[in-house]
Amino acid sequence: MKNLFLIASIFVLFSSCIKDNGDSGSFLSGNGVFLINEGNFMGGNGSLSFYSYDSARIYNDLFLNVNGRPLGDVPNSMAISGERIYIVVNNSGKIEVVDKNTLESVKTITGLKAPRQISIISSSKAYVSSMYSDSVTVLDLSDNSISGYINLRRTSEAIAVLRNRAFIANWIGGKEVIVINTDNNKVIDSIEVATEPESMVIDKDKTLWVLCNGGWMRENFAELISVSTSTNDIEKKLVFPSKLSSPSCLQIDGTGSTLYYMESGVRKMKTDASSVPSTAAFIPEAGHYFYKMAVNPVNGDVLVTDAVDYQQKGHLLIYNSTGTLKSDERTDIIPGMMYFRLNSDFN
């Protein structure tokens, strides 16, 4: 009887989702961006949203509406591989595997220790970093299981992948980027960068950019560091002017030539710049509470999330490439990382 009720409930929820969307959920196969709403730590109110460029509106609570259960406690990141989406749920120690077009649950991978970010290495392999474990978890994407671990002897956060190299940042209390040969899952090098490497991107010249925030206590200056991915040598160190500078969330545009990051607003700089920008923010916070950002690789839109008081529905603010606000959408609690899904027809 209880199961019948559950099934009925799910049907009603899904029906209402379909009715609400008015397009049978087809928006998921269109152009848009997935948004991970972290929710409150221990609050269990993390969720998944999708902003559709096609209908210019946001769809919230997608995982719950489709699967009839909450996503989990503090979803943090996701990745798309083939027909699957992998959503890493940090405080629930799991990865939800869902169908890319319907978001129906395919599998739940459990047993991970504080997983943080996921990076697709190949069609059959992914790496997952960990905030508390000293190992990176290796996933076998053919059966969506844990196939092994790579012992880094330190915790891990951001992952950047180029050819058969994975660069993994040791963020909390660390100052290194670990290099892994993805062919054999072996640690082959470590690069000492600066205090607390928080986020990384790779530019058009295959240079790795590492944003080090100087430590959570601001004990050191934040630095933006470029690293040659062929030699693993540091090429450039751009030091922020004050210890009070607190940059985060390094991103790069679709051409791979302009870097973006958040520091009291959104700032941008060319990869060939000789210093970090000292002018006013490209997009000022203007009363918002910027939390995470992303740059549309095709049209250069800058998407920024506003977490407001971190206990209510936040906002997704979409600015065009010149910094003009195009759209302000209500999300769910603590909107965080974003992942674009753009088809070849998007412009």
């Binding site: 009363g287 918002h288 509470y289 506003d306 407001v308 008081d309 206990q311 209510q312 529905k313 906002h315």
Partner: peptide, 15 residues
Amino acid sequence: GSVLPNDESLGKQLV
């Protein structure tokens, strides 16, 4: 009252 300009909690019941 709130220091946040877009605070939707105004007028709402406390958690």
